[in-house]
C-alpha cells in the first residue's frame, strides 16, 4: 500500500493526486489518501464510482486526519 499525504490541500487537489498516483500501485493494490479537506470524504468514493475503482473505506491517521483507502481494479 502507498500513502498520499494530501494534508492542507483543498478540493479537488486530493482527488487529482489520487488519479495521478493510482498506477503507482499494482492492480489489486491499495492506495491511501490522507486528507483533511471535508470534500474528500464524499469525493474519494464518488471518484471510485466514476472511474471504476473500489472504495475500501476510511480510517484515521496518527494525527486524527481522515484517511481514505482505494483498491485499484484496472
Amino acid at each position: 500500500m502507498i500513502e498520499l499525504d494530501c494534508r492542507g490541500m483543498l478540493c479537488p487537489r486530493p482527488i487529482i493526486e489520487l488519479a495521478r498516483h493510482l498506477e503507482d500501485v499494482p492492480v489489486g493494490g491499495v492506495i491511501r489518501v490522507v486528507a483533511d479537506d471535508a470534500a474528500a470524504a464524499v469525493d474519494v468514493p464518488a471518484w471510485c464510482r466514476m472511474r471504476g475503482q473500489e472504495y475500501v473505506g476510511s480510517t484515521v491517521a496518527d494525527d486524527d486526519v481522515p484517511a481514505y483507502d482505494v483498491r485499484r481494479l484496472s
Binding site: P12, I15, P45
Partner: peptide, 16 residues
C-alpha cells in the same frame, strides 16, 4: 469550506 450538503447526501461528486 464545507461542500454542498445536498451533493454529499447523494454521494455525488462535490468538486467541479
Amino acid at each position: 469550506l464545507e461542500p454542498s450538503h445536498v451533493l454529499a447526501a447523494m454521494g455525488a461528486l462535490t468538486h467541479g
